[in-house]
Design a binder for these strands. Structure first.
Lengths: 333, 333
DNA sequence: TTGTAGGCGTTATCAG
DNA sequence: CTGATAACGCCTACAA
């Protein structure tokens, strides 16, 4: 930097100001400095900058590594983060949060306190609020993405799960279905809980019957869903429609129906949730509730950026979902 | 740190040595320092440390973002990296390399020169060697994962694609197949090139006929593979077996066959490559060549760690693949 | 708008 | 094995 200063005949401070671009500098000087920097092939030392400003140039993405990476959901989230962070000088660091970190607030806190990250984007489908409150009380800048946190002090962004289920049920009611079943997600996940309770509520307010076998367990995976769907369909009073807690589950239900010779949607309608499966890739063209994951992630990242910039950011934001009608739902028999 | 030093009655330097753990310290002092650090709830400042050592505590993962993220392959790679880096003080930073960075060596070089990363793990299926050589000549510490680089100065790790194809062909020959077709991958990818040329070589040395329609284009996706498989199977002289450049392609081929009423494996055997699709999730139980992606990634990361530690690391390393026999291959008709 | 002075927290170096 | 000293390169704060 000093060299650039000498080369362009100004003080190092001016060079700093030009290159960090966060202060007004005389345009002519700016040009001179930029030219000199280019001539000398000068690259600012991000380490020194971070050190001096006492803030890392990273946004830490904290997530349960194993489970999420490699899912389309994760991909969309990352692309959303990316779009929000683009143009910033910030980068992502994906932290290994498999084990410790998500059990003990200190794990994540350390990442922050060590200044390895200037802020945290947390994707923690099953993280306890108490944990988050601890984190919050430590003065850590973070936003939760893909989960709904009720504590108004903790900013979070996710889709409106309840509304999604509502829309799906409306769709099925319009098609004449009165016997609607549900395959749940893993009960420890917030999204699964919200979807199931929304289902129960809607069914009740629509005045539909809900025999016990109409609600089956699931874990957001195909194999488990196949088993659960089979149970429902083999019953002598099967539902005419099954809403599934996510698309993997719906895929499993469709495969189970196919294997049993039950036609979809003629004999049974099947609705999914997420909208991230590609019909082209997956041999299953699901009617589903689409949640704009990229949008959710981008907003979460944007809110984090605001937070890091000192702006006040509070509370939960719901993002709207929408119904995508494809080939697995049709009129009730 | 000074506080910890005072608290434990030693010099800051000793504290530094204890906490960074890279120098021998009297065990008694070590205990004293550790105790004091805990009492004061001291967390070392990673920023200052990086600055002082002039080296970032990050390994940069540089990859064509959009295409890879969210694939099982990517997941396995990250898990592999993780296992190698575990126990180190290092973290990953996943860099946005969609656009610029992979066209111009300066893009990646900047990441390194800015000290945002102490080393780079590059997943670049279609990166030109010239580019890599430039990077190398800039003195950047990097290892290429999942691609084979011929330049001996550039360390890389990937699976032995040619051997995989060879094994698959041996398997099919044993089953009595003499009419074997191939669906290619995207021609710009090294892996696709290697797999195709290995196929051609093996077919030739086995003395098999290879009519033109036995080799069809593909792009590692299901839809394209479906089309290509259909072309082959509709021909009046179809192959009795089709080797596919990857599992997605094989999945497409299986789906195409199913749709045409061609039985797999009774009428046609189909072999994949990668071994990352789960038969449980995917409704297709492929015979395939398994490449241990985690192992590949872990070795790449380990080599990078060595490189960063100043050890000499050179050349390409091939990792063995293996045949996984499932349900899509059988005796030739 | 520009320049000067000083300090950020750690570690390399070298002497003891 | 331990301690003193200096330096890393940038930025904040203040002065001009």
């Amino acid at each position: 930097m000093h060299d650039v200063a000498k080369e362009s005949g100004v003080s190092p401070m001016t060079v700093s100001r030009v290159l960090s671009g966060r202060r007004t500098v005389d345009p002519q000087m700016r040009r001179r400095v930029l030219a000199a920097a280019r001539r000398l092939d000068y690259v600012p030392n991000a380490l020194a900058s971070s050190f001096s400003r006492n803030r890392a140039g990273f946004i830490g993405v904290a997530t349960a590594y194993r489970d999420l990476i490699g899912t389309t959901f994760f991909r969309e989230v990352m692309l959303g983060f990316q779009s929000a962070v683009r143009g910033t000088e910030l980068d992502f660091a994906l932290f290994d949060c498999t084990s410790e970190a998500f059990r003990n607030p200190k794990g994540l806190a350390r990442i922050y306190r060590q200044k390895k990250a200037g802020g945290l984007l947390i994707m923690a489908p099953q993280m306890e609020e108490k944990y988050l409150r601890t984190l919050s009380s430590m003065g850590i800048a973070f936003v939760v993405a893909g989960e709904r946190v009720t504590d108004p002090d903790i900013p979070s962004v996710c889709c409106n799960d309840a509304r999604g289920i509502e829309i799906m049920i409306e769709h099925l009611l319009k098609l004449g279905h009165r016997r609607i079943g549900f395959i749940c997600g893993p009960s420890q996940l917030g999204s699964a809980q919200r979807r199931e309770s929304a289902f129960r509520k809607c069914v009740e307010s629509a005045g539909l019957a809900l025999p016990k076998h109409f609600v089956q367990p699931g874990d957001y995976t195909v194999p488990k869903a196949k088993a659960s769907a089979a149970v429902m369909l083999k019953n002598r009073k099967p539902p005419t429609a099954i809403i599934c807690a996510n698309d993997q589950t719906a895929k499993g239900a469709v495969l189970a129906a196919r294997e049993m010779g039950v036609r979809v949607p003629e004999d049974v309608s099947i609705g999914g949730f997420d909208g991230l499966l590609s019909p082209e890739e997956d041999d299953v063209s699901l009617t589903t509730i689409y949640q704009p994951v990229q949008e959710i992630a981008a907003l979460a990242a944007k809110r984090l950026l605001d937070l890091m910039a000192g702006k006040p950011v509070r509370g939960h934001v719901d993002i709207d979902v929408s119904l995508v009608i494809r080939e697995t739902t049709g009129p009730a028999r």
